[in-house]
Write a protein that binds this DNA or RNA. Structure first.
Lengths: 340, 340
DNA sequence: CTGAAAGCGCTTACAG
DNA sequence: CTGAAAGCGCTTACAG
């Protein structure tokens, strides 16, 4: 059906093994006319190497998986993961690797993982992204040995990639202090043992840094409605010019903005707002949000980089990395003296 | 290194070919005890079939590609494509197929396509999404014969999947008429031969349907700034209670809203607004937008369905499909009589 | 019911 | 400089 080395060889009048060597360019050790004959024949016949055959010999599939959480009723939950994917893809492509998306519920180890990647040897490695329970980590790792853990709750010396979330908290604290606020309100919810690491790290990074300067971080709780809208029952009393509200992510920031607007409060003037995170959409929809950067494309790129390193030398696993962040100046917090 | 049939066979005390047959469950034609011995041995040793070897025999890679446009400076342009990807993935997974993301600039045929999928036989088929030039279509098709064209400008009898964009225009027209508007303004830009098919179809579907009822569709032009913000120079004069503005997509709707807000105009009251498209984000950020539905997850699911059909029987290619749309009631257009 | 052989398309030692 | 052989891990006719 498709053109193989043998077909090309027949046309070129050479043995198929010779054709293989010419095409793989083993040291230019052929007569130029022979080379040309082979190359022409291959092109004319539209020869394309069979990846499976090559894989069998080389033991490398040149395929990496990206494991994403597949939450029921949250089809779109992982939108940000796409940027990560593009970053990974961009890096892997350079080395001839392909990227396949694998989705899994959090209970995969109990048997609901259906993807073929767990049943056959198809992947050289797997990049795991986001929140899964420890059991899942162990199970996945036992099936696919070469893993990079990107933004998961796992943190070892090797193979893990995190955003430096404590630094995020400290950055927020620094700007709260620089602007002269004496009251700050955390709106990112209560930290418990099931939390994603970012929640604890942002919270304590912020709290501790503020405490060092004699400011106690206040907190308000939040509710999540069935339709995924965030509600902050105690928010109203904190719309004050002397206060800065700290949102866990842009969704939270948006919810605060909406609530404030409906009460006639103007962000930046009637209250301050800072956000610990950003998403690609915020560049278009709310570039003025005062926030800490979060380049998920870069995270993907680095995760891919670590994966390539790991595959290159599995014995010497890549050292874990923490990605730094920057403060992005916005117009949603100007300090406590700007009441109009 | 990894466990093969031979290792399992040795443990089970059988030939490796027999082990293969048992594991592939060829008609239960083995003694139960033999079967059990094999199955136990395989599990104990953690046997996993080698996909490459299987591929070599079956001539099927069980891999599908998703081709996305890779625009310089538009890293995040294709965010909506992720939902499509999830839809495709969900369907393919059921049949054991893997999905790989492939990105390409629009000039690939001139040589900037770097992905390995164009240089080796790795994919059983390719789903092409979005806007490329006809040259690219031809080139891609010549390299990878089994293609499904999802939301591209290509429209044949077979293998194409479109949203019914003319119906979108007609749906908008219908609701404009139902609400009693006599003036409607298209803000979706001028149609030319490089336009995506959706632009022409939405525009003419709307225009023709309105014309049938004696209403002439007005138009205003738009500019795109360097930072991707949309500007409508002639917009101001159209913020009138007797008028409905029709946006090409949610980005356009957002831009109109922002402009209106800055002029103290209240959407739904001071002017009407309808949108031809929706994105996942709009469910969270602007559920009240009066618009036509666009389920990209479903489009992905159907594209995958067509691909599986094509692979199942390449001789009988799947007939092209047009996906219908629904009107989503919002609060941004109430008819021309609601001026306050 | 089980085993031995052929072959999928390639690469890489080893001969000539 | 070119060719013939072995082998990657599997499946599937064909023997026994």
């Amino acid at each position: 059906m498709s053109v193989t080395l043998k077909h090309v060889a027949k046309r070129a009048g050479l043995s198929w093994q010779t054709v293989s060597k010419v095409l793989n360019d083993k040291g230019h050790l052929f007569r130029p006319e022979t080379r040309q004959r082979v190359i022409d024949a291959a092109r004319e016949m539209g020869y394309v190497p069979n990846a499976a055959a090559r894989t069998m010999r080389s033991k490398k599939t040149l395929q990496i998986g990206l494991l994403l959480r597949n939450e029921e009723g949250h089809r779109y939950h992982n939108l940000a993961a796409f940027i990560l994917l593009l970053g990974i893809n961009t890096r892997l492509e350079q080395n001839g690797y392909l990227l396949s998306v694998v989705r899994m519920g959090d209970l995969a180890c109990t048997g609901d993982a259906k993807s073929r990647v767990f049943e056959e040897r198809v992947l050289d490695g797997l990049i795991v992204f986001g929140g899964f329970s420890p059991d899942v980590f162990d199970w996945v790792h036992s099936v696919i040995p070469n893993c990079i853990w990107a933004d998961t709750n796992k943190w070892d010396e090797y193979c893990c990639l995190h955003r430096d979330e404590q630094q995020v908290g400290r950055l927020i604290a620094k700007h709260i202090l620089d602007l002269g606020y004496r009251r700050a309100v955390w709106t990112g919810g209560r930290v418990d043992k099931h939390s994603h690491y970012s929640q604890a790290d942002r919270y304590f990074g912020l709290k501790d840094e503020l405490a060092r300067h004699g400011i106690e971080l206040e907190s308000i709780s939040s509710l999540k409605r069935d339709d995924n809208r965030l509600i902050y029952p105690e928010l109203a009393q904190h719309f004050q010019p002397d206060r800065v509200l700290v949102a866990y992510n842009t969704l939270g920031a948006q919810a605060i903005l909406t609530t404030g607007t409906s009460m006639g409060k103007s962000v930046g003037w009637d209250y301050g707002l800072m956000c610990c995170d950003e998403t690609p959409e915020v560049f278009e929809s709310w570039p003025g949000l005062s926030r800490v950067s979060n380049d998920r494309f870069e995270m993907g790129y680095q995760a891919a980089e670590m994966m390539l390193q790991l595959l290159d030398n599995p014995a010497q696993r890549p050292v874990s990395r923490k990605m730094g962040n920057e403060w992005i100046i916005g117009n949603t917090a100007w300090g406590p003296h700007t009441a109009r």
